[in-house]
Design a protein around this nucleic acid. Structure first.
Lengths: 349, 349
DNA sequence: TATGGTGACTGTATCGATCAAGTAGATCGC
DNA sequence: GCGATCTACTTGATCGATACAGTCACCATA
């Protein structure tokens, strides 16, 4: 009596075969109403909760769920506006397809973890994972469809994102066109080691976050094209995409001997910190100092921030659509747009 | 050659048993290094991606994942600050436990859907589901641990939330103590039919969203205790927790023959709409009109809104902790706190 | 009356792994 | 020198369902 209830239990009691009982749920048209109702009644009496999902999944070879792997600790990801917007897009796609979304935490020690090993999924999204992360390798080994968002770019794995390099080039061109020759570039995380500080070419070459590296390279390209000497560009990596840290860094730079006349922040969040630092120093953005961002998240308009618009929602939607078969599979470079607002101006002499 | 690679494939090639191959992953201490390395090498050559999660899950009887069922369309849920904060809490708990989080979409037609039927999970959170939803029943039938957050209250299912009734009573008491006798109560969704408009007791009795019903009842209790006649209280249900709609409703009320002197909004989002409407009518909150909210989400402080503080993060964390075995299982009523700010004042004569 | 079609089920193989129990051979203790 | 213990495996059963190929009764058609 304490045995678990399975299809067989019900089959025995009703006097039909296991298969018929199975059909009562999965293919109701395969049996007579009379038998089906009798089966459901007995199932209810026995407290049977419907076909076991694990067994079902094993036999059918599908999970009706896709996975999502994120760089960040999940706690942080759910707080980040860009990630939240991406999730909205993913949600829209899976909702349509009646497919679950399994969010898989990664252990802090950069391993793989039981959660990923046990993840019953038909495919997996990877959002801004660092190149060479063991979890990425583990997933590639599994023979399920994958899509990366923002990075990394992997052979044979569709990529969804924007032309980060081109976008940042446009952004930097704008800044240089106003005559700025002394620029602080605030980069989002490039290497996966929580390092915070000025960085050199060597570190850039060792970068694992594709979009960060691309944005920095785009900035350099614009500098070269505009004939800006490299020593006029100070590159600073902020390991955590948070405005407070950016504010400290910019405040320090402004208090230095040779303060920059412009700050190119490679995310709006960092730009917000830069703006706060500038304002605190009595500088008017767009007049006394030029500050630009990247992403055009909601707050950017309020801050009157010049930035690059990209749609996190679309990235999420398109990537997930590929996995649920709602969109053709393959690389997808989404559009971006330079949004000119008030925080850019000529060098103040 | 095109056959799928399984443990058996590898076992045959290496010349050991299936189980030994299995052990190479699951219990590395059970076999000699020499054999294990040989197995892993062959596995790699054959492109084996590790033990099949579905089969593993079936045999082991666990999924290393918990589910999350939400009222809303997911798209909306990821945009809602309170839900996002809750997710952060959930994320913190599952991250610690190395457990996945499966977010299950519900089909728009109030059914169950393949995603839920196939959900391979060890337990499930339900966040503010309406009483009597078929998905709730389906989950209860399944013999896995459940926890409801905010509602419904189900026999034998632990509940995590706050004392919504007591909290709203305190909130209303404050308002009535300032002499308000003509109050508009803006309620979040009570019944699951997208109805928008004034509501009566009968509809309240038929309410399916526990926290909404409780908050309204608490308000009534405070009114009774303060000797406020029931016809001095206009109850209006806003089906979608969005400020724009609240603004319209409050604007209309303020333009009516007998405008309310206070608005009790049962969420901060609705309160934000009420504030916007008041300001647009030239009324100064706290001076010309009293407005209170509920939740104390981030925006509330900026709006100087008097409200009730509760921690969505804690709700999520505690509920998830119960499912992953990190906290004792059982009902948990978390603390709340009346936060007095500037939007409350005496009736202006 | 033979033939074929159809609806409603049954029986068996299979999905891919894990677990419990068992075994062969080596090592150890007294 | 003999049983006890240990290591490194193997075997067989099991998890719970679904796919597929029959089987059988029943009816229609020629």
């Amino acid at each position: 009596m304490s045995q678990r209830v399975t299809l067989q239990t019900i089959a025995d009691k009703v006097g039909v075969s296991r298969t018929t009982v199975s059909n009562a749920w999965s293919r109701p048209d395969q049996l007579s109403d009379e038998v089906r109702i009798r089966i459901l009644k007995v199932a209810d009496e026995l407290g049977y909760g419907g076909p076991n999902p694990a067994a079902r999944g094993l036999r059918r070879g599908r999970a009706d769920a896709i996975g999502l792997l994120l760089t960040e600790t999940l706690q942080y990801a759910f707080g980040d506006p860009h990630a939240a917007e991406l999730l909205r897009g993913v949600a829209a796609a899976i909702e349509k397809a009646d497919t679950g979304l399994l969010i898989v935490p990664l252990p802090p020690q950069r391993g793989i973890g039981e959660a990923l090993r046990s993840a019953v999924i038909d495919g997996c999204l990877m959002y801004s994972m660092p190149t060479g992360h063991p979890a990425v390798d583990a997933l590639r080994h599994r023979q399920i469809p994958l899509v990366t968002i923002d990075g990394p770019r992997l052979e044979g794995v569709p990529f969804v994102g924007i032309d980060d390099r081109g976008a940042s080039r446009e952004l930097a061109e704008l800044v240089f066109s106003y005559g700025h020759r002394d620029v602080l570039v605030l980069s989002i995380r490039i290497v996966d080691d929580l390092h915070d500080g000025p960085i050199d070419e060597q570190r850039l070459d060792a970068g694992v976050y594709r979009n960060a590296v691309e944005r920095v390279r785009g900035t350099f390209e614009a500098a070269d094209a505009a004939g800006v000497p490299r020593d006029g560009i100070r590159l600073y990596e902020v390991s955590r995409n948070h405005r407070d840290r950016a504010q400290e860094v910019v405040a320090a730079a402004l208090a230095s001997e040779r303060p920059p006349t412009a700050v190119i922040a490679l995310s709006d969040e960092l730009a917000a910190g830069a703006l706060a630092a500038a304002t605190a120093s009595g500088l008017r953005p767009g007049t006394d100092i030029t500050i630009v961002g990247f992403d055009d998240q909601d707050a950017a308009a309020h801050l009157d921030l010049t930035t690059v618009r990209q749609s996190a929602y679309d990235k999420g939607y398109q990537a997930a659509a590929q996995l649920v078969g709602a969109a053709p599979v393959g690389d997808l470079v989404l559009p971006h747009q330079l949004v000119r607002r008030g925080t850019v101006g000529p060098v103040r002499t």
